Simulated scan of single mutants.
Amino acid sequence: MGIINFQGKRTNQPEKKHEPILVSDHMSKNLITFKEDQSIEDVIDTLIKNKISGGPVVNEKNELIGIISEGDCMKQISESRYYNLPIDKNNTVGKAMIKQVETIDGNMNIFDAANKFLNSKRRRFPIVENGKLVGLISQKDVLKAAMQLKGNTWK
């Protein structure tokens, strides 16, 4: 007696299309931004109150001109404490911020963004469209996006 196949007739099922998971779908849009003329003390207060580690610096046209981080603020504190002085009121964001800011495209796949984070050692990337700041993606945003997949393919 031969082997009987009980699976029945097989039909070709259409392949499911997987849409890419884009940075713009997971970026933060309600941003805390800083101005070039703000004091470092003001930035430190904002970082602590909002439990964030840094943020973009924009001009009056909402154009990205820099980024300020906890590390930049720590440098200012360290320098003033070294000379046993209070934080200089003239130390502004414009003097402490990083001006050469790497940005990321909002249409980039979230996993390509993860790779960019790993290669650059950055904690956040601003997203700019038409010269204007439109969002910010952090390492945590990428992790949240990955956790939402739950069983989807990783393409």
Rank of each mutant, 00 (worst) to 15 (best):
S138Y: 02
G71M: 12
I67D: 10
V128I: 14
I32N: 01
E70N: 08
R123P: 01
M74P: 02
V128K: 02
L118R: 14
G55V: 03
S39K: 12
T153K: 03
I44R: 00
H26C: 04
N62S: 11
E15A: 12
T103H: 12
T153W: 00
I44T: 06
I4M: 10
F117W: 08
A96K: 04
G131H: 10
L136D: 00
Q13R: 10
S53N: 15
T33N: 03
V23P: 09
I137R: 07
I77P: 06
W154A: 00
P14M: 12
N30S: 13
R81T: 14
V58E: 02
A114R: 11
K89V: 12
A96S: 15
V142M: 03
K9R: 14
M27K: 06
K49D: 15
N119H: 12
F111E: 13
Q7R: 09
V23L: 11
K140T: 12
R10D: 13
Q13W: 04
I65V: 15
G71H: 13
R122M: 13
E63W: 05
N5S: 12
S28P: 01
Y82Q: 14
I52Q: 06
N130K: 13
Y82I: 07
I77E: 08
A146P: 00
L22N: 13
K17W: 10
D105I: 02
L31W: 05
A145C: 03
Q38W: 15
K89T: 08
G2Y: 08
C73H: 08
E19M: 11
I32A: 03
I32Q: 01
D112V: 12
S80Y: 02
N91L: 15
T46R: 06
V58K: 01
M147A: 09
I40L: 08
F117T: 07
L133A: 04
L149D: 00
T153F: 02
I87H: 06
V57N: 05
P126F: 07
K29M: 15
E63Y: 03
V134F: 03
S120L: 07
Q7P: 00
N59Q: 05
Q76S: 13
N62M: 14
G71L: 11
E60Y: 07
N130P: 01
K51V: 08
F125E: 06
V43H: 01
F111S: 10
Q148N: 09
N62T: 12
D42H: 13
R122T: 09
N62C: 06
G54L: 06
I21S: 11
M1R: 07
V128R: 04
S80M: 07
L136R: 00
G94S: 09
K121P: 05
I65R: 05
G94Y: 11
D112I: 10
G8S: 12
Q38P: 00
V58W: 02
N12C: 01
K144M: 10
K49L: 11
D88A: 08
I67W: 04
G55W: 02
P20N: 09
K140H: 09
N152L: 04
D72T: 06
E79C: 01
G131Q: 08
D141W: 01
I65K: 05
D112G: 03
K99D: 13
Q7K: 14
L47H: 05
